[in-house]
Amino acid sequence: MSRPVLEFVDVIHEYPGSPPVRALDHVTLTVSAGEWVAIVGPSGSGKSTLLNLMGALDQPTTGTVRIDGHDLAGLDDEQLSALRGRALGFVFQSFHLLAGMTALENVATALVYRGVPAAERRERAAAAMSRVGLGHRIGHRPAQLSGGESQRVAIARALVGAPSLVLADEPTGNLDSRTGEEIMGLFQELHREGTTLVLITHDQGIAAAAPRRVGIRDGKIVVSTRDGVTV
């Protein structure tokens, strides 16, 4: 099997409180390069918590999380930030585009913290915009884009740095079903081109598009299938 991009070993995550909320309970999971994984579960099951750990945005309470071979436990803020910027691409449910910038500048921002020179940032951002089918919208501001276009810009921003892993939390949650299908089509293409994808959804129908499905409930993994076969 190919190189693991993401490894969870016996991960517990608790939010502080009395009693503490156990959002992830003994999760063990491996995602390999080139895989497309859909994580499905009802509201409050721990999907976003799982994604935060996958994205090095948070640390596990106990257990081991490795991204691209780097154990999060040994990393400080500088190193975690570097890992996010280099190895990961994020797509959020609410797009999170920066309102004061054009679509192109939004995409190019993903390369700022890598020290890429401004001219090269622009070129690569334009290429990523074309890749998601928005080559004609580069000068538009987020307020001038439809929801589907906004999410495409966000996907271009996640892809422009050629990350090892793209993480998407309910990427179609704010879109109508038709636009949502178009976005899923784009993910399908990216997967075929070799992008490693983890997609979070509470919608079984959307999850059905992914070859690998992981079901989560009350912080525990309850099903894990690849091409219909339990793994």
Binding site: L57, D77, E78, S81, R84, G85, F90, H96, L98, T109
Partner: peptide, 12 residues
């Protein structure tokens, strides 16, 4: 949040 996800450190 987005900038932190894109690699910005606290210092940045």
């Amino acid at each position: 949040g987005v900038r932190r996800a894109l690699g910005a450190t606290r210092r940045h």
